[in-house]
Structures are given as structure tokens and as C-alpha cells.
Amino acid sequence: MNIFRLAGDMTHLLSIIVLLLKMNATRSCRGVSLKTQELYAVVFVCRYLDLFTNFISLYNTVMKLIFLASTFTIIYWMRFHKVIRVTYDREQDTFRYQFLVLPCLVLAMVLNSEFTVMEVLWTFSIYLEAVAILPQLVLLQRTNNIDNLTGNYVFLLGSYRALYILNWIYRFMTEPNYRQYLVWISGIVQTIVYIDFFYYYIKSWRNNEKLSLPA
């Protein structure tokens, strides 16, 4: 574990904590995409199946459990919490799951390192994670006044991806046989998805303005 990887994981964790705190404090999930959260739940479930088959480290196991539990908590609040569910922008959050899930599933069946159930699902989770933020970005674009916390959530998620790229570069230079092309390419695609958002986020921060994304 290198410093970039740890910083990436902590940023990822922080992004989810920011979202949970925001929803809990304001009793509102305005501007949050349930579709993105449910896609993340699918990503985590498919990727963390190895919790049952393979022990890597206590850190690894605990983090996986935290990501699963926190994502399901967010989904539960957005769907069933008495107060929070009323604030969900159902009409705006219209991205269709199948546009993301089906291509990723097909790609994972074709492009994987081993054609087994576990490996295909793991690869599927890598591809799906790369695009799972799209419903959230579309929803942000439709929200006129993006509140700070939702903006920060997406910014932290993007930062986590950027730190993972640094982690891969570091590992590539220090570990002799370290190669994972599918993960790298998906990770780079995933980071590119955020670039446009980063541009407007930093611009609004420098100008001290509220964040809004042009349609």
C-alpha cells in the first residue's frame, strides 16, 4: 500500500461520509442521484464477492464492508426514509440503467482475463464503476443551484479516481510484475468523465460563486 492508494481510499471514504452527513443533517437528498447510488451498490456487490473466497487484509475487508453498508444506507434513506425520500428529484433523475449496465455486461463477457462467473462479474464492476457517475452528473447539470455538499461529494469522488491513477503509476514503477490493463483503461476513462465537472468546480471556487454546470 502506497500513499496515493491510501489517500485515494480515504478520499473515497470521505466522499461517502460527506454525502451521509449532508443527508442526515439537512434531511434532504436534493441533487443526489439515486441511480448513481444504486449503480455503485451493484458495483460493490459484484466486485466484493471475493469477501467470501479470498482474505486480503483486515484493512481491505473492513473498507469493503464500509463501502457496502454506507451505499446501502444512502439508498435506503432515499427510497424509504420518511422525510428524505420526499426530497428526491425523481423527475430529474431519469438516466436509464440499461444504457450503462448492458454495454458493461457485454464488454465484461468479451473482454476479461478469465471467463468465470467471479471474474466476469469483477470485470463488469470495473467497467460499470467507470460510468456510474453519469446519472449524477446529468442530474447536477439539471439542478440550478448545486449545494456545496453535493458539489464536494462529486469533487471528492473525482479526486479519489485521480489519486488511484497516481497509485498505479507508483506501483508500475516499484512492483516488477504489476500490470492490469483493463483496470487502468477503465480508470482513465472514469477520470476523464470528471474533467468537465472539475473545470466548473474550480472555476466557481476561484470566483467565489455558487457552482452551476452549463446545460
Binding site: D9, D50, S57, W122, N177
Partner: peptide
Amino acid sequence: KEEAEEKDEL
């Protein structure tokens, strides 16, 4: 062992 190393990321 290599397989496990590959999948140690979250």
C-alpha cells in the same frame, strides 16, 4: 498469490 495481489484494490 499473483491473482490476490491484482485484486487488492477497492
